[in-house]
């Protein structure tokens, strides 16, 4: 049953993405930017999905420290890993857009810098997990680190904002304008990416649980 739900969400997300790709392909070019503006339909949803992953990871980590249920640890790893993949694509799409519009791949602007630090922090989480052998210790350390990393993100953001800023203001909350049917595609893409994230996290979660079971069986075999 759980499999069917997961695959159902996956198929729905794929269908929405396919439909959106077709629709976005047909949208006219923007006056100043040409066709490269269309990257926003993917860039922003990537960050939304990555952010969802980070929040899920924080909640799972805190709950793990309280309840000590290893399922929550598996959820934390799964959502961090999938979130990191989305953040990577978010950085890459942003970089491509920057190359076209600003003429440079990268600039040390507030959002870009804090996004990169965010990426490094979560990559550190995965590296830390690899360095700890003992499963219980690994889960605890990873959860603690996840909390530290999550607290750091807003502080990093504000500190770098005072430092310098040049990323375009958000289209939706700070001026800028989007025709209504573009907004519809944008929001559907956002929903589809988050759904895709949920599916990937669910698959990765199941793999992590299976891995834990294999490890415990192996230990049992050793003990016998």
């Amino acid at each position: 049953m759980r499999d069917k739900i997961i695959y159902g969400i996956g198929i729905a997300a794929a269908a929405v993405i396919a439909w959106n790709l077709y629709a976005i392909w047909g949208l006219p070019d923007e006056v100043n930017q040409g066709s490269v503006y269309k990257i926003i339909f993917f860039h922003v949803p990537m960050w939304a999905a990555g952010g969802t992953g980070a929040v899920t990871s924080l909640v799972a980590s805190v709950l793990f420290l309280i309840t000590r249920k290893f399922k929550l640890d598996a959820l934390a790893v799964a959502s961090t890993e999938v979130g990191l993949a989305f953040l990577t694509i978010g950085l890459a799409t942003g970089s491509i857009w920057g190359r076209q519009i600003w003429g440079i791949w990268w600039t040390w602007d507030a959002r870009l810098t804090s996004a990169l630090i965010c990426w490094i922090l979560y990559a550190g989480y995965l590296m830390l997990r690899r360095a700890v052998e003992e499963p219980t210790q690994r889960a605890i350390f990873a959860a603690v680190y996840s909390i530290f990393a999550f607290i750091d993100v807003p502080i990093v953001f504000f500190s770098i904002k005072w430092w310098r800023t040049q990323h375009p203001q958000p289209v939706f909350w700070g001026g800028g304008s989007f025709p209504p049917d573009w907004t519809r595609h944008f929001l559907w893409n956002m929903a589809a990416m988050i759904a895709l994230g949920v599916v990937l996290t669910a698959v990765r979660y199941r793999q992590e649980e299976a891995q834990r079971e294999i490890d415990s069986l192996r230990r049992m075999a050793h003990a016998l």
Partner: peptide, 16 residues
């Protein structure tokens, strides 16, 4: 691992 984990978290403090 120690510098790998601490420096990114320290960025706001070091920057200030």
């Amino acid at each position: 691992m120690l510098p790998m984990l601490t420096y990114p978290i320290l960025i706001p403090a070091l920057l200030a």
